[in-house]
């Protein structure tokens, strides 16, 4: 039982084929205007493609084209949408917002409210039930919106940059929450943050100019990017490993000191993330304060904007062309990558 989609929308130069297994979460990455939101709108039934077909678990969502006019209205699709803006109905209480979906499906009022309370508890928002949307912070509102979308038990959950409107304190909390509720759920999440893809999705597709340019397991796409866009995204250093008291130990035995954004217990699986721009390159091992110093072998040099990206296995660093020349960087050279602990974020994997 799968979800399949083939859709062509000529006016937006959109032509996408996609399928999802039950329980699979796909992250959609891509530059602005690539058609990411169009993809979600087509699945949700808010935009009508010129031709194509979509089916979820044997139910046809649409079948359009020569002589075919099957069209399932948005409210019969079972595709709840969680957008960047929570869009909580301002005239309804938080509880009524979450109960809206079940109520619309004909669930009796009391049962719908019970279901709403259950999902509010799931997103740690049980105490907000009586509030009005206007009284919530951005992070609270988005958690309630997530509960509202989940309360309809959608066949496909659609998430359109759900974290991008949140401040840096609220985002990690919601990301963790989404990781929990998306486990085992079929979902499509549009994002511009590679960390979202890494943490929330089983699979990544890259959409450029209305077409899928990459499609594969998240780690594969981010490690071996074929499209320029994915390559740009993949620049973020992501090191999986085991959480330690002061940071993370990688599978290769390297110790990363870093910031724990979330409460983490030593021994659990985690990931250390830091941008190449935070990495400095030295010919000799530095003595002193920075604790993250790794001896690596340069595998590749490539221009990256007005910088030179120095790749060493799975890690990369950005240096200025002048610095690159001073150091005499070339593939095969042994150097030290040094990154301050403050620039390394440790997440649960």
């Amino acid at each position: 039982m799968t979800f399949t989609l083939d859709a062509v929308l000529a006016a937006r130069r959109f032509e996408v084929s996609l399928s999802l297994e039950p329980g699979e979460t796909v992250a959609v990455l891509g530059p602005n205007g690539a058609g990411k939101s169009t993809l979600l709108s087509v699945i949700a039934g808010l935009v009508r493609p010129d031709s194509g077909r979509a089916e979820v678990d044997g139910r046809v969502l649409f079948e359009l084209g020569a002589g075919m006019h099957t069209w399932t209205a948005p409210h019969r699709r079972g595709t709840a949408l969680l957008a960047q803006d929570p869009l909580l109905f301002p005239h309804l209480s938080v509880l009524e917002n979450v109960a809206f979906g079940p109520r619309s499906a004909g669930v009796p009022r009391k049962e719908a409210r019970d279901r709403a309370r259950h999902w509010l508890a799931e997103v740690d928002a049980g105490e907000l039930a009586g509030r009005r949307p206007g009284e919530l912070s951005g992070g609270q509102a988005q958690r309630v919106a997530a509960a509202r979308a989940l309360a309809v038990d959608p066949d496909v959950l659609l998430l359109d940059e759900p974290l991008s409107a949140l401040d840096i304190h609220a985002a990690p909390l919601l990301r963790r929450l989404l990781k929990r509720v998306l486990a085992g759920r079929r979902a499509v999440i549009v994002t511009h943050d590679v960390l979202d893809a890494y943490m929330l999705a089983d699979r990544v597709i890259v959409l450029e100019e209305g077409r899928i340019t990459e499609d594969g397991p998240t780690r594969d796409v981010l490690r071996r990017p074929r499209s320029r866009f994915a390559a740009g995204l993949a620049g973020l250093n992501l090191v999986p490993g085991t959480v330690t008291a002061g940071g993370l130990r990688s599978g290769d035995g390297l110790d990363f000191a870093g910031q724990h954004d979330d409460p983490l217990a030593p021994g659990q699986a985690g990931v250390a993330a830091f941008p190449p721009s935070a990495v400095s390159v030295f010919l000799d091992e530095a003595h002193g304060s920075p604790r993250n110093s790794f001896r690596v072998t340069v595998t590749d040099l490539e221009p990256h904007g007005d910088q030179i990206r120095v790749r060493a296995g799975e890690l990369s660093a950005d240096v200025t062309p002048a610095a690159s020349a001073d150091l005499g960087l070339a593939p095969g050279l042994e150097v030290y990558f040094v990154v301050k602990a403050a620039a390394v974020s440790i997440y649960p994997a």
Binding site: A44, L46, P74, A80, F89
Partner: peptide, 25 residues
Amino acid sequence: SRYEAVAATLGARPTTVLRRVTLPL
């Protein structure tokens, strides 16, 4: 119409959207 779109994806029929979302707004 963004609230209406969200309401529809939550399973509300057009008449329900009109009654519970559009008109109150």
